[in-house]
Each structure stands twice: as C-alpha cells, then as structure tokens.
Design a binder for these strands. Structure first.
Lengths: 147, 147
DNA sequence: ACATATCCGATGGGATAAGTAGGAAAGAGG
DNA sequence: CCTCTTTCCTACTTATCCCATCGGATATGT
C-alpha cells in the first residue's frame, strides 16, 4: 500500500464532501482546493476520477459543483485508495496465479504479502467517511470548549 | 509498503544464504543469480547494499562469495525490506512531527496509516529467515515423499 | 602471473508522479 | 442570444525512481 498525493487529495476531498453532505449543497473545485490545500487543476482530475468511480456526482456551469453520490457511511477509505492509488497489495504477485510456480523459494514470500494485504484491508475497509466526519465534529467541539 | 524487484531479490538472496548457512560455505553471486533468477550485475548491487547493512559478509577473489553475517533466526523479513525498499509506512507523514498541524482535516488520516504500518510491522518483523528456511525444508520433504 | 570474485561508478531506457496549460462543453441569469 | 461560471477532457512537462547494463578497479587463492 502506497499512498500518493493524488490518493491523499482524493481522501481529503471525499472527507470535505462528507462534512457538507447533510447540507445538500454543491461544493466547487475551487472551494475544495482551498480547504484541502491542493492545486485546483490537479484536483479536477482527481475529482473526475472519483466521479467515474461512482463516489461523487457533479453539476456544471454556474452554481455547479460536487457532492457525494452515496451516504458517507457507505464509502470506506479503502474504496477511495484502491480507486485512485491502485490495489493495496505490496507486491504484484499476490493475486496472480502462481500455481505452476517451479520453485517454492520463489513463492514463499507470497503468503507474507497476502497476510500484510489482509491486515491492511481489515483496517481501511472498515473505516467509513461517516466515522471520520463524526471524529472531526467531536474534535471541533473539544476545540471550541478549550478556546 | 511497496516491494520492488530489488527488495524481492534481496529477500530471496537472504533466504538462499540462510539455506546454506549451516554448511558454512560461501555462495557466489553467480550461483545466487541462477537460483533466485535475478540479473547478476543487478544482484551484485543488492548484495553490496545488504553487506553495508550488516546482514551479509563477503570474501573477494577466488573461492570468494557471500554468507550471512548473523544467525538466520536473527534476521527478519522486515529488516531486509526496510533496508532495501525503505520504511514500511504507506505515506510520508506518518513518522513526521505534525504537532503543529493547522487543520485537523489534514491530519485525520495519519492515524489510519499508523495503524496500517503497525499491522504490517507486526507481521514482517516477526518472521525470521530461520522460520522460512524450516518451512522450505518441510515442504521439500513432503515433495520428496509425493515423488 | 592468472583466473576468479567482489566492489564500485557511470549511464540509459522506461515508467510513474505531480503537476500545468488550454480549451471544449454545459448550465444559469440577464 | 450573450456572458459568466464551472465542470470536463486532452495533451504536455518536469522530475524522480526502477531496473537494469557496462566497464573496469580491487582483492584473493593456486
């Protein structure tokens, strides 16, 4: 599992949209890029990818923008990372068919990477953006108390 | 965690040396490259890195070669992967100091990658090349029985 | 001396990451 | 219809890494 800037932007964008989900309003790529600190033209490409992946929907033109295509509770971190940054497995051979592998020494590490992949998936596939959004609002309350 | 060819070669080379550890003999880069199916000149670079990392030692000249610098039970998969392919964390910010992070939304994913890193480390740091070598010898016995 | 190995630096092709740039297409308001 | 806004789409750039390949320098046993 390797997270690129693209993946990082995608996660932050989805989180921001999750925070605006209840309002029902559209969020522009400009506003998004400001809040998550991403170059707007690069972010546009990411948003397009997220749209094609079915996670967000958009409206063009004046008062256009983006919003989540699903409830935040039905989008996981793993969903977004896999779409944008590819599969979570650490090496290519994990999900390939190596049944005809000539030498066991060449395959003995496969089991290790499978375990790593399962452990990773066990984490990222069980965290939804509803979880993250609620974490944020809790933290913001604490913050406003401490101030 | 991303495993490159270099890391894959390194792991296989260490495993091969672990299998030859009891004999006390040196293994040449040529023999290694044949058995683990790696280009010899590339493998040489990897072996040099492993030597500088303190995992193998070498002797030059005629009847030279490589052998493990430690007992196989004291070298883990994590040791080798970290040396050759870098740290196991999925994104750079995990071990950096983000205590002065302005916006919580920019940091909320950090905890996730820390968990992923811990889970990964929990696997690769507890598998030694003694474990792997014994797995191989067991499998080879089964194989010789079935033939 | 000679054959054999490791050691070491330089170089290059290909892929990927991370943006930049420019404009086409769609939609709202006047 | 015109204009402004915003998404959509493609192409290009720049840098970095990956995966080697090559040529030779250095060490070592016979």
């Amino acid at each position: 599992m390797k997270i690129t800037f693209k993946g990082d932007y995608a996660l932050k964008a989805i989180l921001d949209l999750a925070l605006h989900y209840d309002s029902g309003e559209l969020v522009t790529s400009f506003d998004l890029s400001q809040r998550i600190d991403a170059p707007i033209k690069f972010l546009e490409q990411v948003l397009l990818e997220l749209k094609k992946g079915g996670f967000i929907e958009s409206r063009r033109g004046n008062i256009g923008g983006y919003r989540l295509a699903r409830v935040p509770g039905q989008i996981t971190v793993g969903d977004i990372v896999r779409l944008v940054d590819g599969p979570s497995e650490p090496i290519a051979c994990v999900n390939k068919d190596y049944s005809n592998c000539a030498d066991i020494k060449k395959c003995i590490f496969k089991g290790i990477w499978q375990k790593v992949d399962q452990a990773t998936s066990g984490i990222i596939d069980h965290i939804t953006f509803e979880d993250l959004a609620s974490q944020i609002s809790i933290n913001q309350k604490v913050l406003s108390y401490s101030i």
